[in-house]
């Protein structure tokens, strides 16, 4: 299977997009490596979908350039770019069977029937829908439709696969399952995946690299670990995971709630803050404790329920401590 594909690398250089006077994407520079799983993560209105649509060729770029494996594709129309795409809501062809949906890209390229048949069978196996080849999309569940959309987009072995919030319509439990399948398919086919989502958990669990976008520009790029452990800005720290923000000596730091230790009473040697518990929320594996410190900060602390079995109560006086490395200095602007 893998030999049919070879991932492509993309270079996005100074790309901007204006809708009238509104700047949807602002001077984005990005290098997407061959075969990687890259996620564009951001809230709605951050320009991530606009950027994806420009890569797909559905939107013209106002300025800048996009190049595939070194040659510019800015002037190439969408139907000539050969990029696979999984649309939000899937956009399957409702009047065609699953088999015809998946084989469509080869059929419009006028490939021989036998080749299309063989290739579609391969794709059906990849997404495990062999028994559904002759159904219409309307007769499938949401998860199955999503897999048809994926198979349809991969059938012609595109160098780049674009995914526009493909899991948005699925319920939470199914989503986790499909994430695993997507990762597995990515490993097997070797195509470059560009994935758009506003769901930080999806981004963390699937990506090789994540691009955090905000107001049409890139906020920070890095591997999930880099972004989670060393967020550069307040926005990055709060959008990917939860974060406390503390100020010390005129500098701002981000501090993840699970990296803080909580001690009952006072006089702990490493204590950095002391305060009162204002709320405790129980989540099963952990509990979230909000402490109002004597500096009048609200600090969230996530503690492992099993490893910290001393009972805590609202209104109790506690002290907080953390290691130096836990607090990450931010570029405050």
């Amino acid at each position: 299977m893998a030999d049919a594909f070879s991932g492509g690398s993309l270079r996005i250089e100074g790309v901007s997009k204006y809708f009238g006077a509104f700047r949807a994407v602002n001077e984005v520079d990005l290098e997407i490596r061959k075969g990687e799983f890259l996620t564009l993560l951001g809230p709605s209105g951050s320009g991530k979908t606009t950027l994806l649509m420009m890569i797909a060729g559905f939107l013209d770029i106002t300025s800048g350039d996009i190049a595939l494996d070194g040659s510019s594709i800015a002037e190439v129309p969408a139907e000539k770019r050969n990029f696979g795409m999984v649309f939000q809501g899937y956009a399957l062809f409702p009047h065609m069977t699953v088999r015809d949906n998946i084989g469509y890209a080869l059929s419009v390229r006028k490939r021989p029937e036998a080749e299309i048949r063989a290739r579609v069978d391969e794709m059906l196996e990849l997404v495990q829908l062999q028994d559904f080849a002759n159904r219409k999309p309307g007769q499938l569940s949401g998860g199955q439709q999503q897999r048809v959309a994926l198979a349809r987009a991969l059938c012609f072995a595109p160098p780049v696969l674009l995914l526009d919030e493909p899991l948005g319509a699925l319920d939470k439990k199914l989503r986790v399952e499909v994430q695993e399948q997507l990762k597995d398919i990515h490993r097997r086919v070797g195509t470059t995946f560009i994935y758009v989502t506003h769901d930080q958990e999806e981004a963390l669990s699937m990506s090789d690299r994540i691009v955090i976008m905000r107001d049409g520009a890139i906020e920070q790029v890095g591997s999930p670990q880099e972004l989670y452990e060393r967020p550069a800005t307040r926005f990055a720290a709060s959008f990917l995971g939860k974060s406390n923000f503390i100020h010390q000596n005129g500098r701002a730091y981000a501090l993840r709630p699970e990296k803080i230790d909580i001690h009952l009473g006072s006089g702990h040697p490493q204590a950095r803050r002391s305060g009162t518990i204002t709320s405790i929320t129980y989540f099963g594996s952990m509990q979230r404790i909000i402490v109002e410190t004597t500096e009048a900060e609200q600090i969230e602390v996530d503690i492992d329920v099993w490893r910290n079995r001393q009972p805590l109560h609202e209104g109790e006086v506690v002290e907080l401590s953390w290691q130096d490395a836990a607090a990450v200095e931010l570029n405050e602007s």
Partner: peptide, 13 residues
Amino acid sequence: DSRVMDASRNLGA
């Protein structure tokens, strides 16, 4: 759904 037509173009039609 206009996305269906976009999908067709995207698939090379």
